Structures are given as structure tokens and as C-alpha cells.
Computed example of a mutant assay.
Amino acid sequence: MSIFETVKAIRKTKGDTPAQILTLILLVIFLTSMFFTGALKLNDCPAEPFIPKWLLVMGIFGLLRLLVSQVCNRMVDDDEENCCQGACECMLEVFLFAWFVAGSVWVFRTYGDVSYTKDSENYCERPLFRFSFVIQLGTYILMGSSLCCCCMFGCMAAIMDD
């Protein structure tokens, strides 16, 4: 039995763990804050008008991705193949990745020139820009940490097999 089959079997018998529920709640709060920050500050960054739009769209589609995943997982039996669910999730993931890359370009391109004084040509409201910057930087740190952990566990597994 593979590790994925074991996890599926445990999840099927025990349901969601408190850690999974807490993670889901925190993710919903985070994505909702992205949505509302982008919506409320839509015209507050003339230096790069796409930054608030990036937050707004990322929040909406992130929430949609969670909703599709949760609803489909509750409705479809684990043994049943759902091609439509997989295709929807894949399209959403590809879109979210592409939108994240676009947001990276907009945020990091503006980083050196941004001004927090309203009279400036490169004005962007401080909380809006910093929130976007922290999201980008935090995501890159998490991706890098995850990659390092995967490599470390892969190397440990290879050593243990020998």
C-alpha cells in the first residue's frame, strides 16, 4: 500500500483533522482579506494599477479553487473517478500560477520606485503595496522551504533504502 493510499484510507475513516480544518479557515480568511483589500483599494496605486486588481482576482479565484475542491471532495466518493473535477481544479491551478507570476512582475517591478506620498507619480498606498509584497515574498519563501524539505526527505528516503 502506497503512502497516498494510506492517507486516503485514514481520511476516509476519520474525516478532517483539526489541523486541516484550522488550515482551511486560515486560508479562507487570508484569501478573503486579499479580495477585500483589492476591492477597497482598487484605485489607490497609480504606480501600478494592476496590484489591487491582482489581489482582487487572486482572492476570488483562490476562494473558488477551495470551494470547488471542498464541494467535490464531499460529493464524490473516493473510489469514484471524477474527470470534470480534476480538469476544473487543473485549470484553476494553472490560472492561479500564471496570475501569481504576473503579480510578481507587477509588485517587484514597482518595488524600487514606489512612493507613499499622494502627490508622487509613483504613489501606491503603503498598506496595499506592503500587503502585496509580503504575500509575494512569503509565497516564494514557502515554495523554497517546501522544495528544500522535499529534497531532504527524498535524500533521506534514498539513504534509508540502501
Rank of each mutant, 00 (worst) to 15 (best):
P49S: 12
L55R: 11
G38I: 02
T37I: 09
R74G: 07
E48N: 15
L63H: 05
R65V: 00
F36G: 01
A47N: 03
N43H: 12
A39F: 13
A47R: 01
G62R: 07
L66W: 07
F50T: 15
C72E: 10
V76L: 03
C45M: 01
G62D: 07
D44M: 14
G59C: 02
L67G: 09
Q70Y: 12
C45Y: 04
R65L: 00
I51F: 10
F35L: 13
K53P: 00
P46Y: 11
M34P: 00
D77P: 00
P52I: 07
C45K: 02
M34V: 01
K41R: 13
C72R: 13
L55W: 11
T37E: 06
T37D: 02
R65E: 09
L40C: 08
I51A: 02
L56E: 09
F36E: 01
M75S: 10
M75G: 00
I51M: 06
W54F: 15
V71C: 09
K53A: 06
C45V: 02
L67C: 06
V57Y: 13
P49W: 09
L64D: 01
T37W: 06
W54G: 09
D44R: 13
M75F: 08
I51E: 10
P52K: 09
P49H: 10
N43G: 10
D44K: 13
N73E: 14
L42C: 05
C45N: 02
A39C: 02
S69F: 11
A39E: 05
L42Q: 14
F36S: 13
M75L: 15
K41M: 13
R65F: 12
Q70E: 08
I60M: 08
G62W: 05
N73C: 06
L56N: 09
R65C: 00
W54P: 02
G59L: 05
S69R: 11
P46I: 06
K41H: 15
G38M: 04
P52F: 04
P49E: 10
P49I: 11
I51V: 11
L56P: 03
R74D: 02
K41P: 01
P46V: 10
G59K: 10
P49T: 07
Q70W: 11
G38Q: 06
L56R: 13
R65Y: 10
W54C: 03
G38F: 04
C72A: 14
L63N: 07
D44E: 15
A47F: 04
V57C: 04
L64R: 03
C72L: 10
E48G: 04
L55V: 11
Q70V: 13
L55D: 12
T37G: 08
C45F: 02
G38K: 11
F35S: 01
L66C: 07
W54M: 05
G62T: 09
L40S: 14
L42N: 10
V68K: 06
S69A: 13
A39R: 12
C72Y: 10
A47C: 03
A47S: 04
C45A: 07
D44V: 07
D77I: 01
A47D: 08
F35A: 00
G59F: 03
F50E: 12
S69I: 04
L63T: 05
G59A: 05
K53Q: 15
N43P: 00
N43I: 06
L66K: 08
I60Y: 04
L66T: 05
